[in-house]
Design a protein around this nucleic acid. Structure first.
Lengths: 158, 158, 158, 158
DNA sequence: TTTT
DNA sequence: TTTT
């Protein structure tokens, strides 16, 4: 299409440690959920209200997966720039389901740590060397999976 | 949560005329879908590939609903700024489903026409006076509905 | 213009305490500078490089000025959404100068604290009641000024 | 700095054809100005008001310079994502000046045509092959320049 | 279902 | 200097 833009910007905290999975072809994906919340005063009752929204995030960019592996964990506050993607899948009962995610691929995607203490400053110019980094490694799922998408969908309800 | 951001920016075209619904309490919602697409050259095959993503949009801001009613129709190119929201609902078979939408509420939400010919310049400072506007009115669903969310969910598969 | 967008998003830290000024007509403005920085590895030398950019910010939205007064101070990390504006002025030697600022007015502007400890969650739905809030009040410039813009320009070099 | 973001999003029209300059080292820059405008109804007088803002844009990303060369010209409507940079220079009278620009470098920068007729769909995955493209080539400044920044600053007043 |  |  001549000129379209698909961009999501989130600042929020991770609900759990990220999950990293290797693909048979060598690629990998980091997935996690991010909470954002709003609060407002109800017009009628005058009560303070709050609503939390959970966003499912999938990181496919190689450099950003490394950042996630080393620095991002449950509770981390992150700035994320990605794109919206909806994919169709079939659950165990044969029901068709749709899942919408914020996806970080190479171009125009960013992940920046906002916690201060740990981690690098920006998620783009990722240095390619490794190195552990304290003890905050994410929950690594061991080994390649084949039924990747069904597996992911079992765990998170949307 | 101390400091979160939930923002979606889309530039794309409407797949169909918007649908406007009145709520019993006087509010209204305009809903439509927006297509964005990307194209790239496949690394292996060298082929040109294209992928279109469909985004479900729901406009609750009173001023923006008016803009949509008057100026936005099938094929319109729009700039949209809203927030991601996922809601749970139950289909006719009693299955729980989740639908993720780009929602435009009052603050920080924008809808701007990018087609040039028709429409006002920006979706924020909406003048409160009415007036028809050519012949490009959207498909108006007549009258208030009670089972609003189930109804919407019948029509669009995600 | 049919469909234009002017938006700046910054995440960075304040270089100094904000400066608040009252206008004779009752309005006020909060101004401060925000640093963002990038680091990258130089392609030729392999050295780690870093560059800091300073952004001049002016907050005119009444609710956001209150937020700034109470919660924002030197070193605070903030998320800011505003618009770019360039204004012309004349310095003491009669030279014409141009200053570009990130301006926060009512619509679509946001300021969110990212420090965690202090402050409210979002800069939009600001409650209109007052209240001190610890000891972190910004450097308040006492009383209305008439030569507002020249005064500001004396202090910051761009 | 741990975690900063510097992002500008513009949708607007070019005031003139872009200017392309080659650097001695082989790089190039495309520069142009983009207009955005707002209109609102004055609270007191009830009059319709309009204000146009001019943004100076400098494109350093190699792929995006090609896009600009081929497709972007006076009057074109574009979507731009870049970062804010302020640089210091000295004019002919030895006066120090500051110029703030929206700069498009490699990562996270985008330029997308919104005019419909001409041009490719997105400014990121630029194909590296050439090709003229009708007659809409921008005003090409011939040959490399050495005093690049002074030269640019002569022409545009901020 | 849009658009190029 | 653009655009409506």
């Amino acid at each position: 299409m001549a000129g379209s833009v698909n961009k999501v910007i989130l600042v929020g905290n991770l609900g759990r440690d990220p999950e990293i999975r290797q693909f048979p072809n060598g690629g990998s994906v980091a997935s996690f959920t991010v909470a954002t919340s709003e609060s407002w005063k109800d017009r009628n009752s005058g009560e303070r209200k709050e609503k939390t929204e959970w966003h499912r995030v999938a990181v496919f960019s190689e450099g950003l997966v490394k950042i996630v592996e080393r620095y991002v964990k449950k509770g981390s506050k992150v700035y994320i720039e990605g794109q919206l993607e909806t994919r169709k899948w079939t659950d165990n009962q044969g029901q068709e389901k749709y899942t919408t995610e914020v996806v970080l691929r190479n171009f125009g995607s960013t992940l920046t740590m906002l916690d201060g203490r740990d981690g690098p400053s920006g998620g783009r110019g990722v240095s390619e060397d490794g190195g552990s980094y304290g003890d905050s490694s994410p929950r690594q799922v061991d080994g390649p999976r084949e039924d990747f998408s069904a597996d992911l969908n079992d765990e998170i309800p949307f």
